[in-house]
Amino acid sequence: METLEQIKKRIEAAVPGAKIDIVNNGSPSAQHSLKIDNEHARDVARFLRDDPALRFDFCSNVTGVDWLDRVIKKTVKTKQVVDGVEKDVDLTSEEKIPGYLEAVYHLFSIAHKHGPVIIRMQTGRANAQLSSLTPIWRSAELQEREIFDLYGIKFEGHPDLRRILMWDEFEDFPMRKDYRPPDDFEWEPTPHDDVLERAKQHYPARPTETELKPS
């Protein structure tokens, strides 16, 4: 199989305007992935599926990941002259990464028996929206519905986007990292005193329902 760099180059040649980044994976599995942008996602996916050398005709696993706002602290050792004496100083730089939702697709090729190539798409946590890859790979149908249900990413172009595991009236997205289970599963808001107290502590922290609702 071609390396990710080669694949990236070829996608950029085949799909003009596509923004592809290679996301490195530091673990021993070394499964690096390609980050693709939302506008060209379907064209990139079609290229990956139809290109005779790649032929990723089998989309195995589709899943969502929720990343909350993060601060990455980097410490760089530098030499600085302090009061005329050279000293080692740790420079700490903080990088704020706003939270986002991610959809990850694991692609394999049955025709050429290679893989995986991992593609990922990102979207903001409010009004999360991505283009659906179900028209390219049918296997994404139920799995994208599951992401919609549990993470609240709306997939544009999905033929039948409904809740799948939770019931239709359910509001909220249980796999998001800031999800709080209702304090009482039977009554919400709950009538019991101590549960109500707990609920009061929890509810202000929750994002408002309109913020979370797709569309």
Partner: peptide, 17 residues
């Protein structure tokens, strides 16, 4: 370590990953 991995096997029902 920090990172990600996808592992899969041929389970009796299909690909379990």
């Amino acid at each position: 370590p920090v990172g990600e991995a996808y592992g899969r096997i041929e389970a009796p029902k299909g690909e379990l990953g």
